[in-house]
Amino acid sequence: MDSSSIVEKYFPTLTTQQKAQFQDLGTLYAEWNEKINVISRKDIDNIYEKHILHALSIAKFQDLSGKKILDVGTGGGFPGIPLAILFPDAHFTLVDSIGKKIKVVQAISDALGLENVEAYHQRAEKTKGKFDFVVSRAVTRMKSFVNWVNQKIQSDNPNDNCGIIALKGGDLEDEMAEIKRMYQEVAISDYFSEPFYTTKKIVFIPF
């Protein structure tokens, strides 16, 4: 089932507009991927399962309504763009060090009419402002990632549950031991039944 119906299966309360945006998303990525390769050719046929729904697993873990989110190393816009469709009242800043990928992000968010997305061709360290959450998808080892973004998270109120939410895969024990701080690991297969998610995980590092 690689169509937007897989999104509706797990998020049955989408508005008419959100359903239309998710339907358009696959087509937009297919068109842009012909010009600028942001998703591997073999994955574009499975974009809903391997990219869009994968990004939305974060929404099953954490309600982002009204929050400010920084998506670091967003590539073609994951996990930021699917999350921005799902949480129209949250604000998303998507950054990547590769300019042509940000061009795709900008074009797709414009085509979808997403007014809650800003996209910048820059490194995380250069991004201005503070955020409730920093999200990412397997950008680098977590020790380096924490160093890049730990100044970007606003943690004034300990009740706010701010922090890093990362999409990872496989055995993370050694990698997570390097950061020497508390973290939570959640199996995405707890949320989604497709075999693709068997080894996929969400890692949350509270700040």
Rank of each mutant, 00 (worst) to 15 (best):
Met176Pro: 05
Ser144Gln: 10
Ser144Arg: 11
Ser189Ala: 06
Asp171Val: 15
Ile153Tyr: 03
Gln154Gly: 04
Gln184Phe: 03
Tyr191Cys: 02
Asp174Asn: 08
Ser189Thr: 00
Ile164Met: 11
Asn147Ser: 13
Gln154Lys: 05
Phe192Thr: 02
Tyr191Pro: 09
Val186Met: 13
Asn159Ala: 13
Ile188Asp: 01
Lys143Arg: 07
Phe192Tyr: 03
Trp148His: 07
Val186Phe: 11
Ile164Ser: 07
Asn159Tyr: 00
Ala187Trp: 00
Trp148Ile: 09
Gln151Trp: 02
Asp156Lys: 11
Leu167Glu: 09
Ile165Asp: 00
Asp156Ser: 08
Pro158Val: 09
Phe145Leu: 08
Leu172Gln: 10
Ile153Phe: 00
Trp148Thr: 05
Cys162Ala: 06
Glu178Gly: 02
Gln184Thr: 15
Lys152Gln: 07
Asp160Ser: 13
Asp160Trp: 01
Ile165Met: 03
Glu173Cys: 08
Ser193Arg: 04
Asp156Met: 04
Glu194Lys: 14
Gln184Asp: 10
Lys168Met: 01
Glu175Leu: 01
Asp190Met: 04
Trp148Gly: 13
Asn150Cys: 06
Gly170Asp: 02
Ser144Ala: 13
Leu172Tyr: 12
Ala187Cys: 08
Val186Asn: 12
Asn150Pro: 04
Tyr183Lys: 11
Val186Lys: 15
Gly163Asp: 05
Tyr183Gln: 04
Ile179His: 15
Gly163Gln: 07
Lys168Trp: 10
Gln154Met: 04
Asn161Ala: 10
Asp171Ser: 14
Ser189Val: 00
Ile188Phe: 11
Gln151Val: 04
Glu178Gln: 14
Ile165Val: 11
Ala166Glu: 02
Asp171Phe: 01
Asn147Arg: 10
Ser144Met: 11
Met176Ile: 07
Ala166Asn: 05
Ala187Ser: 13
Val149Gln: 12
Ile153Asp: 02
Val149Trp: 02
Trp148Arg: 13
Asn157Pro: 11
Val186Pro: 14
Asn150Glu: 09
Asn159Arg: 09
Lys152Thr: 01
Asp171Ile: 15
Ile164Thr: 02
Val186Ser: 14
Val146Ser: 05
Cys162Arg: 08
Glu173Asn: 11
Asp190Gln: 15
Asn147Gln: 10
Asp174Leu: 07
Cys162Trp: 05
Lys143Asn: 13
Gly169Val: 06
Glu185Asn: 06
Leu167Gly: 06
Asn159Ser: 12
Pro158Asn: 07
Phe145Tyr: 01
Ile153His: 02
Val149Asp: 08
Val186Arg: 14
Ile188His: 03
Ser193Gln: 05
Ser155Trp: 09
Pro195Thr: 06
Ile188Cys: 03
Pro158Trp: 11
Val146Met: 04
Asn161Phe: 00
Ile179Glu: 09
Arg181Asn: 03
Glu194Pro: 10
Ser193Thr: 11
Glu185Ile: 15
Gly170Val: 14
Glu185Ala: 13
Ile165Leu: 06
Asp156Phe: 06
Glu194Gln: 14
Glu175Pro: 14
Glu173Val: 15
Ala187Val: 05
Gln154Cys: 02
Glu185Lys: 15
Ile188Leu: 02
Asn150Val: 01
Asp160Gly: 12
Arg181Val: 03
Ala166Leu: 03
Val149Lys: 13
Ile165Asn: 00
Ile179Cys: 04
Ile153Lys: 06
Ile179Arg: 12
Gly163Cys: 05
Tyr191Ile: 01
Ala166Lys: 04
Asn157Cys: 11
Lys168Val: 07
Lys168Thr: 03
Asn157Ser: 13
Lys180Gln: 13
Asp190Asn: 15
Gly163Val: 07
Ser193Asp: 08
Phe145Val: 03
Pro158Cys: 04
Leu172His: 09
Gly163His: 04
